[in-house]
Amino acid sequence: MNYSFDWSALWVHRDLIISGFVTTVELASISLVLATVLGIVIGTCGAVGSRGLRVLAIGWVELIRSVPLLIHMYIWYMALAVLRLPGFACAVLALSIYSSAYVTEIVRAGIENLPAGQAKAALASGLTQFQTLRLVIYPQVLRRILPSLASVFSQLIKDSSLASVIAVADITYEAGALDGMTFRTFEVYAMTLVLYLVLVSIVNQLLGALLSSSMRSSRPSPRELRDA
């Protein structure tokens, strides 16, 4: 092994690394918000909507999930180039829609697995459909699906690396640039791996802390509500 390590090259170009990191975080965060909103809307339709809506929701999920994320990105960037969206916007759209399919499934399953008595009791007490959703269904469902949502967020951060292919200056893109500049190939890609690992770990820890604090809250669990 004739490789001589030189990690200082990374320090010299730390501004590029940092800007790439920031871009990744921005990209992932914005996409997460959009994916969650879209996923909740379509997931709810899939769970409580009419038969036609349910079929559409399931079909939509299958369609989106069966197409690779890279193709999604290319579609927004190239096929829909008529829209002249900048790379970042294309990446956000592709990531959001792709991830929303997973959120949709999680939300739909979450709502469907809630005991049927919950909604019936709420409606029987005079709440409207919308109020039932807002006050009874969503709070319980959201608490139960948080672990799955956390893993969607983790996956989103990793998937965001594909944005580098459509010229979004994220961690992976800057890594390629750095490699070209310094030829410290191993150091650059090792650091890239570490950066993503750190980012994913931070997110997992944060969400883990959020989860346990929500578990400890004093609000009654669905079982308590049901047996009361």
């Binding site: 092994m1 490789y3 951060i157 990793k158 998937d159 965001s160 690396s161 594909l162 580098s164 292919v165 992976t172 890594a175 390629g176 490699d179 190939t185 191993f186 650059v188 890609y189 090792a190 890239t192 791996l193 993503y196 690992l197 994913v200 770990s201």
Partner: peptide, 19 residues
């Protein structure tokens, strides 16, 4: 914890460079 693309680039660029 790693994206597939980065693992791929690591195996294609970094490991051959190292070894």
């Amino acid at each position: 914890g790693a994206p597939l693309l980065v693992v791929l680039l690591f195996c294609y660029f970094a490991l051959p460079a190292l070894f």
